[in-house]
Amino acid sequence: CHSECLGNCSQPDDPTKCVACRNFYLDGRCVETCPPPYYHFQDWRCVNFSFCQDLHHKCKNSRRQGCHQYVIHNNKCIPECPSGYTMNSSNLLCTPCLGPCPKVCHLLEGEKTIDSVTSAQELRGCTVINGSLIINIRGGNNLAAELEANLGLIEEISGYLKIRRSYALVSLSFFRKLRLIRGETLEIGNYSFYALDNQNLRQLWDWSKHNLTITQGKLFFHYNPKLCLSEIHKMEEVSGTKGRQERNDIALKTNGDQASCENELLKFSYIRTSFDKILLRWEPYWPPDFRDLLGFMLFYKEAPYQNVTEFDGQDACGSNSWTVVDIDPPLRSNDPKSQNHPGWLMRGLKPWTQYAIFVKTLVTFSDERRTYGAKSDIIYVQTDATNPSVPLDPISVSNSSSQIILKWKPPSDPNGNITHYLVFWERQAEDSELFELDYCLKGLKLPSRTWSPPFESEDSQKHNQSEYEDSAGECCSCPKTDSQILKELEESSFRKTFEDYLHNVVFVPRKT
């Protein structure tokens, strides 16, 4: 048989008469490798580009789960590009990614509803959504962080984005990388972005840091009482949809009607710091009717980097990364020049730590249904340095008659930039024990000054392991946590139920 035959053949030295091919099969003959313009397919066939392209389009058009959109890589027609490569849609070739590779997620039936953290986790790592997304989240724990972890990498949506009755959302900033909504599939009414009845939605994105392009379709905003109209108009300008909307697409009466839409800028007039305090004062603000001013709200939190936005980490279910302080308005003076500047002394802060701070007014709604208010920009203030805590785990070892090696770990709280350490030492008198000992005694162990690591005695271990207080009263049991108490109650309830079950099964009433 021919060298490319495997198993047997019907005619000697003829690659077209093989029972099976050793390498690849091409047009009725066995070959060692697939010549151009053919590609290896499933490690035994040679196919042309049209064959591989037909497989790709067949799966793409069917949208069946589990099928493969075949691509070409290293002269092979394979189910998908290997790690580190992405497909070129024009020629199906796998090309190296520039940075992290995109991950295209194809949605069944063309859309997916995100109504819980669990459903959001199914899209973790996706960068391109081939379909439409509907966000409908009523509640949950730590929602802002969970949504950002699972949806934060999405850069492109081919269909539309719909935010509907998501009472738990305060902001859409968890879509931190969303840059493009194509609108290839539109919501009824030709809408590519749809926001309806979101009672706590206050911000779409921080438009000073976020760009969003909507290729096709219109915007729809109705019944978002805490979303200011200025935020919607800003989205029109940034996304390129200005002029597409009709009169009733953006409701003037049901958007922002319960919001404090600040239209003035508060400026800080005085800032002073110490290692654990920050004193702030800002310019006074009074609405047209000074009785509408209820006070100020001061927001602050630790910020290692200057990239904080107002609604980071917030949701309507209680999660809030900001510390909020309510401040009463100052006494009002008739003389504008003698107006008191409101302020606040922030206490209990960490030394040498940068804080993000902003302040906003708290006002009631005027009778004319106009909203007044003022808010400052987010500023960054760093507390002063102070003395560091003591170095940890000092170790001293003498390696000769004239040297001592000293080692330690950095302090747990540096409280500033540590530039150097101060080492103090003092000579001590020799131990009298060394002169009084009889060095001729056998088995004498000389006193040693070398360091030995501390260890816990058996008594201390027994005390720590004991669940009861000892007789001397030195140790006591740790208080039980809520989960331990709940577990004990469940076990007790189970024992009672099981005992009742045994009584009912074992003891049967005697027939009379």
Rank of each mutant, 00 (worst) to 15 (best):
Y191V: 07
D315S: 13
T185V: 10
D206Q: 06
Y194V: 13
N248G: 04
K407P: 00
F358V: 06
A251N: 12
V363F: 03
D326M: 02
E310F: 06
F220Q: 04
A144E: 12
V308N: 15
I379F: 08
D367K: 14
K103R: 11
G295F: 12
H233R: 07
M235G: 03
L229D: 12
R332P: 08
L186V: 05
A251W: 14
T361P: 02
S171W: 09
V238R: 09
V104T: 04
I154G: 01
E302C: 03
L212C: 04
P284S: 10
I214F: 11
L298Q: 00
D384H: 15
L298D: 00
E156H: 15
Y160D: 01
T371F: 04
L172D: 00
S239I: 11
F290N: 03
F290P: 05
R247F: 08
N211F: 04
G139N: 06
L293V: 03
R244S: 08
T309R: 11
Y160P: 02
N142S: 14
Q354I: 14
W207Q: 09
N190Y: 04
T353V: 10
V128G: 14
R179M: 09
F193L: 10
A168I: 09
A120V: 06
K350P: 02
L219R: 05
N141M: 10
G217E: 01
S398M: 02
P288M: 09
Q403G: 13
R138A: 15
W352S: 12
P330L: 11
I154T: 08
P304M: 15
T215V: 09
I114M: 11
F221I: 15
S132V: 02
L294C: 08
W344A: 15
A168P: 13
T241P: 12
C105T: 00
G343C: 04
I188D: 12
Q216A: 03
L161C: 10
V128W: 14
Y167N: 13
T118R: 08
L107M: 07
K350W: 15
S166W: 03
D289L: 02
S376P: 01
L227F: 05
E156Q: 08
I188L: 11
I163F: 14
K209G: 07
K103H: 08
L153K: 13
F220A: 13
I395A: 04
E146F: 08
E236T: 15
G189N: 09
I188K: 04
L349V: 07
A303M: 09
G313T: 10
G256M: 13
Y160N: 10
V363N: 12
I114G: 00
L186R: 09
L294I: 10
K234T: 08
I357F: 15
E109K: 13
L186W: 04
L161Q: 00
H106Y: 08
E368A: 10
L201C: 06
G131S: 04
V324H: 11
R370Q: 07
L280N: 01
T371S: 10
P388N: 00
N263I: 13
I188W: 05
H222W: 08
V324I: 12
E122P: 15
S402F: 07
Q258I: 09
S319F: 07
Y194Q: 06
E231K: 12
L108V: 10
T383A: 02
D335K: 09
K277R: 03
W344P: 03
R347L: 09
I250A: 13
H106M: 07
T273Q: 05
Q121K: 01
Q339H: 11
L266A: 05
W286I: 00
N142D: 05
L345W: 13
S398V: 02
I327F: 13
L169G: 04
C317H: 11
E246H: 10
F174T: 04
K409F: 06
I232M: 10
F268H: 04
D315K: 01
H106E: 15
S338R: 01
G313D: 14
T383F: 00
E155L: 08
W205P: 03
L298H: 01
C261D: 02
G189S: 10
E109P: 06
A385F: 11
L161D: 00
L153I: 13
K253R: 08
F193C: 11
L293K: 03
T185M: 06
I214Q: 11
L123P: 01
K253M: 10
L345P: 13
K360V: 04
C126M: 01
D315L: 06
T361R: 02
E146P: 07
Q354V: 06
Y191D: 09
V128S: 10
S260N: 02
F311H: 10
L107V: 10
T353L: 08
P411W: 03
D335T: 06
G152Q: 15
R247N: 07
K350Q: 15
T127F: 02
V170I: 14
I379P: 00
S166R: 00
Q382M: 13
D257E: 04
D257L: 03
E310S: 11
S171L: 02
V324R: 04
L161M: 11
N150W: 12
D292G: 03
T273L: 06
S260E: 10
Y167Q: 14
R164F: 05
G240P: 03
N399S: 12
G343L: 07
D328P: 15
L345F: 13
P329E: 11
S260M: 08
S208H: 06
G189R: 03
Y160W: 05
T213P: 05
L172E: 00
N150S: 11
R369V: 07
Y305I: 11
S166A: 11
L219Q: 04
D115S: 08
L266P: 00
